[in-house]
Design a protein around this nucleic acid. Structure first.
Lengths: 232, 232
DNA sequence: GTGTACATATCGCAT
DNA sequence: ATGCGATGTGTACAC
């Protein structure tokens, strides 16, 4: 990884064009070939970047355009796979260092939607008394429904699981229901949106479409899971 | 901006929990208080981060847990606004430097959807012969339709503009059309999806719903605009 | 490879 | 603040 702090001017041309006037910034060159240009704010997103795979070329510094023009020390050009280009004109360099970081052992995550879905699959009774799981990832022609259950009366219920449900989650479940109801067996399948948090607008749309909203308690579900761990 | 290259272990707790084992990484501390932890790959995405506003606290180095345990030089804690925490245990430090970057003059973009919408608003005849613009951002109860036009016969047309149209663009326009058609004046409003590129699945769904798909040529539109610039 | 959905999405705008 | 849509979204997974 190479860290450069320098005055620079940046021009990107690809799906859009973008221009950064000359100013002092951090230029980050990673071992994967990627290049990113950071200002002194925004934790997550750089001002400009090029994702790998890409080709980095360093041109010799062009002659100054006039006696008043800033002296450039280098011109960097990064070419992406779709013909995207990132041109970085380097002025005064304040820092330039390289570091060998090695491979990262990687990230362990917990709490994402997949885990929530697994917990609900193991404990369908938390969605409704007497409910049982038919299968996870029940296939429909346009994609899998997260959970297919049966309620206490034996009726089918399609459950869409989200961490935070928004309007597109309702649209997604609506499409699934529409297609599932074309099957005789699932003609009267009911829809349930299960999420840790349901946005008000999503709730309104869901109710308008006869979809039941259930907010689930992730910590409670994890608790159930831990109790089971102790029992077995 | 402060750049630290160090062996570190990171734990994030917030919407999810995440753990990074001890390894050498770049820690970026920006002037806005944000913190991000980068490995030598994954392009511009940090492994962990905390967006501003957040509070940074440096604790004294804890005593080693045993004679074999790695010596920690510092323990950093970053607290976000929603109670998110990022804990960084710092081991050996290979680099530590600070730089004053100043405010960035900012980014200039061109070519995004807004521009495409503006060009189509100025040249509705490129969508259909004899078409005229009624208004941009025509309001509906659930949000504005990009363009409302009238065709050569005086019929209303609602146009959703996208750079690349996918299935959710069709859903969006469908919702707008459903609500617009509740108004007597717009009872028979027609739907048009206008985009530089339309994904096959989106096209199928649109046609199934009676929505017309039009691919627009951005460069051609810009050309029309330039010609106009010369004329006036 | 395409299509689909998820993300600690982030970001910007309007209400 | 919240809602909503766009993003040079990036990323993983299934078909």
């Amino acid at each position: 990884m190479r860290l450069v702090i320098a005055r620079c001017q940046v021009d990107y041309a690809g799906r859009l064009t973008a221009h950064l006037p000359m100013a002092t910034r951090l230029i980050l060159l990673k071992a994967d070939g990627s290049v990113s240009v950071h200002a002194d704010d925004r934790a997550y997103k750089p001002l400009n970047w090029m994702s790998p795979p890409c080709i980095f070329v360093e041109h010799s510094a062009p002659e100054p355009l006039g006696p008043e023009a800033p002296t450039l020390t280098a011109l960097w050009e990064v070419r992406g796979r779709d013909g995207d280009t990132l041109q970085i004109s380097i002025g005064e360099v304040f820092h330039d260092s390289s570091h060998d970081l090695g491979l990262d052992p990687g990230l362990q995550k917990d709490g994402v939607e997949a885990h929530l879905q697994a917990l609900l699959a193991e404990h369908p009774e938390t969605l409704g008394r007497g409910w049982s799981l038919v299968r996870r990832e029940h296939p429909t022609p346009i994609g899998p429904v997260d959970l297919l259950c049966r309620d206490a009366e034996g009726g089918y219920v399609a459950v869409e699981v989200k961490r935070r449900a928004e309007i597109d989650g309702v649209e997604q479940l609506t499409r699934y229901l529409e297609l599932m109801r074309r099957e005789a067996r699932l003609e009267s399948v009911h829809g349930v949106l299960a999420a840790q948090q349901i946005k008000p607008q999503a709730r309104v749309l869901a109710i308008d479409r006869g979809i039941t909203c259930i907010t689930v308690d992730y910590d409670l579900l994890r608790g159930l899971d831990n109790i089971e761990d102790r029992l077995f």
